[in-house]
């Protein structure tokens, strides 16, 4: 319990730092969203009118005061208004989040399944050359850019094979290719770590003991090696969640899906500071929660860590 409290406090500090850093960086950018939106000559607004608009957004006060104001708002759950759309940020995010959660969640699960399948197959496959080929696959996939992968998948599966419709697809069909696009680059490093870690555990003396009992390779891998090999992979999985966020931006743009990624892309283009600020905090929150979950999973996987976790 004390451990959990300690970790939560740490998480809050991380969030606070992420918030401050984002704020400072966004402030440091030349120009701002209000100028981008209202300064265009076609609107014919006078400098006085623009100044009024600025004041209505609270953009005319010194940065420190703005900072305190924003912090106070965030703490109370008020993320402010989007400059671009004029709607509350929480509404924007609220409507974009479910799509992205479905995409990212499915993407992550698919990535894990792919990685485990690849790692296991590359250990158990019957021929040396096949194992070698499966071993080198992640190295290839890790170097594939997300946007290119998306385009290739659309080309192959939609236009050539006509397996997944591009237009008029139902929600499930519409998810297939984006999920794959998101999952493949994440599964690659995961599979690499897992395969290497399996190799390492295979050499441990206890594996020799298990084999000396007459256990076959599948049983050895499944019962004895897998759980030991999972630890480093779980650590990497926590880090890779960060990739999901970046991946969602590209994937949603390539596939023209609505979601947090798309929202981010537009907010960046328009320097929509309140939206960006909220998205960064959301991303940081996801990251922190996932890594906390990873830390809590360790002792479940490895009983040796139980006592330490309790004592810490």
């Amino acid at each position: 319990m004390a451990y959990l409290a300690h970790r939560t406090a740490q998480a809050l500090i991380v969030l606070a730092i992420a918030f401050t850093a984002t704020f400072v960086l966004l402030q440091a950018l030349p120009g701002d969203a209000i100028l981008i939106k209202f300064e265009s000559p076609e609107l014919g607004l006078s400098p006085e009118q623009i100044a009024d608009i600025r004041a209505s957004y609270g953009a005319d006060v010194p940065p420190l005061q703005q900072f305190l104001h924003t912090v106070a708002g965030f703490v109370q759950g008020d993320f402010g208004y989007s400059v671009q759309y004029g709607t509350p940020v929480h509404e924007l995010i609220g409507s974009a989040l479910p799509d992205t959660l479905a995409l990212a969640g499915l993407g992550f699960v698919t990535a894990v399944l792919l990685a485990v399948a690849l790692a296991f197959l590359s250990t158990l496959a019957p021929f040396g050359w096949l194992r070698q080929a499966l071993r080198s696959l992640p190295g290839l996939l890790v170097s594939v850019p997300v946007f290119w992968l998306g385009i290739v998948l659309i080309q192959v599966f939609s236009f050539q094979l006509r397996l997944v419709p591009v237009i008029g697809a139902d929600p499930v069909q519409a998810l297939i290719l984006p999920v794959l696009t998101l999952a493949i680059p994440i599964s690659a490093p995961l599979a690499q770590i897992l395969a290497r870690s399996i190799d390492e555990v295979q050499l441990a003396p206890f594996v020799a003991v298990v084999r000396a009992k007459g256990a076959g390779p599948a049983r050895v891998l499944w019962r004895d090696v897998a759980r030991n090999a999972l630890l480093p992979a779980v650590t990497i999985a926590g880090v890779l969640v960060g990739e999901l966020i970046g991946g969602a931006v590209v994937t949603e743009t390539v596939f023209g899906r609505a979601g947090i990624g798309r929202l981010t892309e537009q907010a960046v283009a328009n320097q929509d500071v309140p939206v960006l600020q909220a998205i960064v905090i959301l991303a940081a929150l996801v990251f922190v929660v996932v890594n906390l979950a990873v830390d809590l999973v360790y002792p479940v996987l490895d009983p040796r860590l139980k006592r330490k976790a309790v004592a810490a």
Binding site: F206, A208, V209, G214, L301
Partner: peptide, 28 residues
């Protein structure tokens, strides 16, 4: 081959390893 040997290992030949610390699966 391995598959045939598996019927011998453990059943007809037992094995006691050198280092007891690393010779048991730590997570089971």
């Amino acid at each position: 081959n391995d598959r045939r040997l598996e019927s011998v290992r453990g059943a007809r030949i037992g094995y006691i390893p050198q280092d007891p610390v690393s010779s048991l699966n730590p997570v089971r």
